[in-house]
């Protein structure tokens, strides 16, 4: 089982991203790192100049680097970005919007969690057109993930599942960060940078519910499949994705590696992950076909 670091979903300053990836390169026991802005095309210019150095650093650290695309494509510059990423030479790409498939079909590519690969028929079709690896949507229940993973093995296609980090719940054309500050997308002044882990939204009872990240809405709870590790291994999922947050991601990766290699139990993994997350609840309901915010005991079964 490989471990991956998903793309950074939040708008971190370039220096913070560079430091983050340096530490991942040197210390995190992960196999693959996804790089690139997947949420908002306005954010891309900040990190782009540093990309070649970060890629080199990660590769020196023995990581496979995959370039991830935008998830929502409307404007000319976004359309151009999709065509450009589809033409990437020398690195694998992860596609998050069908626009890039127009160009990448027939050549090897990965498909991200927003490409909606929910079933093995879709997987088989896309594999014939060059998909080598898919990341399942976070809401896909374990029973379906098992079928997808089995078909993936038969087709020689990697099937990845997010095991750590807030779950993406929605994407919009409207920027809710800008809206919260009385602005619109075009004059947002990058206010999303103020919230490195997203902006919490609470219900009127004061209970934290959702997390706003520009045009994206995420869960407040961190998706945590540590209690499901045995099921994930048994069903043959090829990769587990850790989605970056401001918490100690190296420690999270180390805990997962230790558990996958049998050095710690799944109970200890779950304990360590809860301690790493600390300020937010963890949840695994989606995996069990239940409400996503629920945190069910592993004994509940998969």
């Amino acid at each position: 089982m490989r471990l991956t670091i998903g793309p950074i979903l939040f708008h971190w300053p370039a220096e913070k991203k560079i430091d983050f990836y340096a530490r991942i390169a040197d210390e995190a026991p992960v196999d693959t790192v996804y790089l690139g802005e997947v949420i908002c095309s306005k954010r891309t210019p900040f990190f782009e100049p540093h990309l070649p150095d970060v890629i080199a650093r990660l590769e020196r650290g023995g990581k496979t680097v995959v370039l991830s695309s935008l998830s929502e494509v409307m404007l000319k510059r976004e359309r151009d970005m999709m065509e450009a990423i589809a033409a990437t030479q020398g690195h694998e790409i992860e596609i998050n919007d069908a626009s890039a498939l127009l160009f990448a079909s027939g050549r090897p590519h990965r498909l991200g969690p927003l490409m909606n690969v929910y079933n093995d028929e879709t997987l088989a079709y896309l594999a014939k057109r060059g998909a080598t690896h898919v990341c399942a949507p976070p809401e896909l229940p374990g029973a379906s993930l098992a079928i997808l993973a089995a078909r993936g093995r038969a087709l020689g296609v990697g099937v990845e599942a997010q095991a750590f980090g807030r779950a993406s719940l929605a994407i919009s054309a409207r920027c809710y960060h800008a809206r919260a500050h009385g602005r619109v997308k075009d004059n947002c002044q990058f206010v999303c940078e103020e919230d490195p882990d997203g902006m919490p939204l609470k219900g009127m009872d004061g209970k934290t519910f959702l997390t706003v990240n520009g045009v994206q809405t995420l869960s407040h709870a961190y998706l945590d499949l540590s209690g499901e590790i045995e099921a994930l291994v048994t069903m043959g999922v090829s990769d587990l994705r850790l989605s970056p947050h401001g918490v100690d991601m190296v420690a999270a990766a180390q805990a997962w590696r230790d558990a996958l290699d049998g050095r710690i139990s799944s109970v200890e993994l779950k304990r360590r992950i809860a301690a790493i997350v600390a300020t937010a609840p963890v949840a695994n309901g989606f995996f069990h076909g239940r409400a996503g915010h629920l945190n069910l005991a592993p004994a509940h079964g998969s």
Binding site: A170, I171, G285, F286, R290, G292, H293
Partner: peptide
């Protein structure tokens, strides 16, 4: 509808019933 259709699992997060599935 505000969210990109086909990419919203808000209801499933809360209720266990999925808009997409």
């Amino acid at each position: 509808g505000l969210m990109v259709e086909g990419r919203c699992s808000l209801t499933n997060y809360v209720t266990g019933l999925s808009t997409n599935m």
